[in-house]
Structures are given as structure tokens and as C-alpha cells.
């Protein structure tokens, strides 16, 4: 079993990702100070989703690991999404 064939990620990559994440945090704070109703919520959650994607792909190494991890992670997120959707079939139409 290939116990030590790991991809070493240079520091630089992590620092760039960190900069992007902080920038996106700044944007989401700035955007939400303007009250645009539903759009504000959508933008904030969209930015959070993109941020978490960066964390998953780079910090958590999904990009460098076996594809199986990505497939499992996406599957779990989809499942959580469908559960929330099905729950809202009740609340949206009550």
C-alpha cells in the first residue's frame, strides 16, 4: 500500500488561497451591509459556498487525493441538500 506517496503542497499555494478567502469574506461583509432583501441572502450564501469549496479542494486536499474522496463528499452534500429540500416541501406549502 502506498503509504508515503503524498503530494507536497508548497506554502505559497496555501497563502494565496488564504488571501482569496479573506478577500471573499470582505466582499460578503461589504455586500450584506447594503440591504437588497433576498439577493443579499443569496449572495452571502453563494460566497460561503464558494469559500467552503476552496477549503475542501485545497486545504482538505481533495484536489490531490484519490477521486473517491471527492465523490463521497459531493454525494454527502447532495444528500443533505435533498433532505433540506424535502423538508421544505412541507413548510413551503403549509
Amino acid at each position: 500500500m502506498e503509504n508515503s506517496s503524498h503530494h507536497i503542497v508548497p506554502y505559497r499555494v496555501y497563502l494565496i488561497i488564504l488571501a482569496i478567502l479573506i478577500l471573499m469574506t470582505g466582499i460578503s461583509v461589504a455586500v450584506t451591509q447594503i440591504d437588497l432583501g433576498v439577493i443579499t441572502i443569496a449572495v452571502a450564501l453563494l460566497l460561503a459556498t464558494v469559500k467552503s469549496a476552496f477549503v475542501l479542494i485545497y486545504f482538505m486536499h481533495l484536489k490531490f487525493d484519490n477521486r473517491m474522496f471527492s465523490i463521497m463528499a459531493v454525494g454527502v452534500f447532495l444528500m443533505i441538500g435533498v433532505v433540506i429540500f424535502v423538508t421544505f416541501l412541507d413548510y413551503l406549502f403549509r
Binding site: 460578503s28 450584506t32 441572502i41 452571502a44 460561503a48 467552503s52 477549503v55
Partner: peptide
């Protein structure tokens, strides 16, 4: 990353 917008931003 999700708690922050849900409680502070929206």
C-alpha cells in the same frame, strides 16, 4: 464559514 453569514451578515 456557514455560521458566520447566517448569524452575523444576513
Amino acid at each position: 464559514i456557514f455560521l458566520f453569514p447566517l448569524f452575523y451578515l444576513i
